[in-house]
Simulated assay, not measured.
Amino acid sequence: MDDPDRREQLEQLERRIEALKEKDAPKPHLDNHYSQAQQAWRMVIELVAGLGIGFGMGYGLDYLFGTLPIFLILFTLLGLAAGIKTMMRSAQEIQQAQEAETPKTNAPGKGDE
């Protein structure tokens, strides 16, 4: 066997190895990927922010008008409701994103006999 033939075979082998390595290489993480802990903290922060904003607005109005803590209680409850609504909307967005990523394994009509 000639030396150029052997060199050509080695180059072909190296190309095949590189192609297989690239195929099995791990995919880079996408920017829109969040861990479950990050998602949980996001929802907690949204809830606490709603409570804090409601509390601050209620306290400010009570201080401004010199009233009993009626606005404080009212706006704290409204802030809680707004925080829960925002938290639920975030959970729904996360669920929709996960459903879009996960392919359906059971096609309709298959295995339903």
Rank of each mutant, 00 (worst) to 15 (best):
F75D: 01
D5V: 02
I94P: 03
L47A: 06
D24G: 09
N32E: 15
I84V: 12
E46K: 03
R7T: 09
L20T: 01
P103Q: 04
A91T: 01
G58K: 00
M87L: 15
E101W: 08
T102K: 14
L61M: 13
S90P: 04
E113W: 07
A19Y: 09
T86N: 14
Q98G: 11
I45Q: 10
L61S: 05
M1P: 12
L64K: 09
G58V: 00
A40D: 12
I94T: 12
R42D: 12
K27Q: 15
Q38I: 04
T102H: 07
M88K: 09
N32Q: 10
G79P: 02
I94R: 05
A100T: 04
R7D: 14
M1A: 14
F55C: 06
D2F: 13
R15V: 04
V44C: 11
Q12Y: 14
G56L: 06
I70L: 10
Q38H: 12
A91F: 05
M43I: 07
Q98D: 13
M87G: 02
M43K: 04
K23I: 05
Q12S: 05
T86S: 10
L61G: 06
L51G: 01
I84Y: 03
D5K: 10
P69V: 01
D24K: 12
Q38P: 01
D31M: 05
L61W: 04
A107C: 03
L80W: 02
G54F: 03
I70R: 01
A40R: 06
G60Q: 06
I17N: 13
P26A: 05
V48F: 14
E11R: 11
R42F: 03
L13Y: 10
A107T: 08
L51E: 03
I17H: 08
P28I: 02
Q92R: 15
K21T: 06
L47C: 05
E46H: 01
L64F: 13
E99H: 09
D5Y: 05
N32M: 09
T67C: 04
Q36V: 10
Y34Q: 11
I70K: 06
K27S: 10
L72V: 05
E11P: 03
A91M: 14
T76I: 04
A100K: 08
Q38K: 11
P69H: 09
I45T: 03
I53R: 00
G111V: 02
P69T: 07
Q92E: 15
Y63D: 15
E22S: 08
E101L: 12
E18C: 10
E46S: 13
A37S: 12
Y34A: 08
E14F: 07
P108V: 02
Q98P: 01
Q39W: 09
D31N: 08
A97E: 08
Q95W: 08
P103K: 03
I17M: 10
E99L: 15
L13I: 08
R89E: 13
P28S: 02
M1R: 10
G50P: 02
T102R: 11
D5R: 05
V44H: 05
G60D: 09
D24S: 15
L30P: 03
K23D: 11
R6K: 14
I53A: 13
M57S: 03
Y59V: 11
Q95K: 11
T105W: 15
K85H: 15
A49H: 01
V44W: 11
M88Q: 14
K27C: 05
I45E: 04
G111K: 00
Q92H: 08
G54L: 00
K104N: 13
